[in-house]
């Protein structure tokens, strides 16, 4: 029951498992909240307060209350699990970062396409087209490295949209597209 450190690894292995057993494998996403059980530390204000009179206890209580409120907002966890009851294979990935949610759901989408038996190649071609079109716009700006820098920012602003978020495969295709673009450039020059 391994946890993968990278979501890309999880995606890759899950894709392989789905390829092997597409009809029995299921993917469960568990989102759970835990009340934060951080013990509020006695703050440095404590040693300073004995010097003052007993009235200081009144300001102290609100400060403690604040500390509890700060600790209170519960932390969420997101666990992705690919499970095949036939072979008992389980692949897991867990995260607590909100920034990853969109990317992970897109991964669920790509895996869902595999699950449904839709030809993944058709969709991938479309995305390659989109990827090629973006560097062409940036082509005037300069070298291919520049476009490589700009694509991730696109993904961030669009909430993980585009090819960069979907996974290793499409990243590879991006690189392929970039290479093709470079050749075109050389031809033009």
């Amino acid at each position: 029951m391994p946890y993968y450190a990278k979501s890309e690894d999880w995606l890759h292995q899950s894709a392989l498992l789905l390829q092997a057993r597409p009809s029995t494998t299921r993917i469960t996403t568990r989102y759970h909240l835990k009340p934060a059980r951080r013990v509020p530390k006695p703050k440095k204000s404590d040693p300073s307060q004995p010097t003052t009179t007993t009235q200081s206890t009144q300001p102290q209580q609100p400060s403690e209350g604040k500390g509890q409120e700060e600790g209170k907002p519960p932390r969420g966890r997101l666990i992705l699990k690919t499970f095949d009851p036939c072979s008992g294979a389980t692949l897991k990935y867990k995260t607590s970062k909100a920034a990853e949610v969109t990317r992970l759901i897109q991964m669920l989408g790509t895996l869902g396409r595999r699950m449904a038996g839709v030809n993944v190649a058709d969709e991938a071609e479309d995305e390659v087209m989109a990827d090629v079109s973006t560097p062409v716009v940036e082509g005037e700006g300069g070298v291919g490295v520049g476009s490589g820098v700009q694509t991730p920012t696109l993904g961030q602003t669009a909430g993980g949209g585009g090819g960069a978020a979907v996974g290793g495969k499409e990243q590879a295709q991006q690189q392929g597209g970039g290479g093709g673009k470079g050749k075109k450039k050389k031809g033009k020059r």
Binding site: P74, A98, Q106
Partner: peptide, 28 residues
Amino acid sequence: VVQPDDLAGFYARYAEVCKAGMAALKPR
């Protein structure tokens, strides 16, 4: 039940709903 034709649209909305719902995750 999601029909294979609707997969792309479904997951786009799915991502929206999930992102809105999973507010307790660590913000960047």
